[in-house]
């Protein structure tokens, strides 16, 4: 589903964020990306939906090389990838329902009248069905993050990316969020989570990519 071949990223000014990264993620896999802050986790994650483009090497997502994507085609790529951020990135002037509905409207494949069922299904999965009329500011940090997850999955993407999704949450909430990801993985979604919370992710017993200083230090298969 995701393949990195000799990928490197050099920022203008000469800083090497990533060097010679090689790995392959099968469809339906769930894995973690870890390392100290500044190790290149975010940069690596951002390359998959083409928020950043690599300076060298090749990335293949769902069988298609990313360097073939023209500017105009990038939105199509992003619609197949759900992205979750540390700071949930919800739109403050819209309620929970409208935030979650956004990806369905963006694609143009849905009538605004028909999105309700899918929005509610997504909200139900994250346990926030009753909060659809609330605004983000009325929600706790954990709830906001769950709305962010609902928004990421409402379009049934093939790939789910999460960048430090539990960075602002206490251990219990973090575990809840992780188990949500596990549930999505169980229905076939490929899940890649970047996190520096080693304790939490090693308890998940999944495959782990460890980055240090922009290099892939280890690719550990979790003991099943």
């Amino acid at each position: 589903m995701i393949e990195f071949n000799r990928v490197s990223k050099r920022y203008p000014g000469g800083r090497e964020a990533l060097l010679d990264i090689n790995f392959k993620v099968e469809a339906g896999e769930m894995l973690f990306l870890t390392g100290h802050s500044g190790a290149g986790k975010s940069t690596l994650l951002k390359m998959i939906p083409l928020i950043e483009r690599p300076s060298g090497g090749e990335i293949i997502v769902d069988g298609r090389a990313l360097n073939k994507y023209k500017r105009r085609q990038v939105p199509q790529l992003r619609r197949d990838i759900g992205i979750i951020f540390q700071d949930s990135k919800l739109l403050a002037d819209r309620n929970v329902f409208d935030n979650v509905a956004l990806p369905l409207l963006v694609s143009g494949d849905n009538h605004p009248r028909d999105v309700g069922r899918r929005v509610r299904a997504a909200l139900d999965k994250v346990g926030l069905l009753k909060r659809e009329h609330d605004f983000p500011i009325q929600l706790s940090g954990g709830e906001q993050q769950r709305v962010g997850i609902a928004r990421a999955v409402v379009n049934r993407p093939k790939v789910l990316l999460a960048d430090e999704p539990t960075g602002n949450l206490d251990p219990e909430l973090s575990r809840e969020i992780m188990s949500l990801f596990e549930q999505f993985n169980q229905v076939g979604v490929t899940v890649l989570v970047a996190s520096h919370d080693l304790e939490l992710i090693s308890s998940m017993r999944k495959r782990m990519l460890i980055l240090r200083g922009g290099r892939l230090l280890a690719d550990e298969r979790g003991a099943m």
């Binding site: 939105p75 992003r78 619609r79 990135k89 739109l91 002037d93 956004l102 990806p103 963006v106 928004r151």
Partner: peptide, 16 residues
């Protein structure tokens, strides 16, 4: 600005 960034992140085209 923030809203525009989010919409682009979830696959909003230039036209959208």
């Amino acid at each position: 600005r923030d809203e525009i960034e989010v919409v682009k992140l979830i696959g909003g085209s230039d036209a959208f």
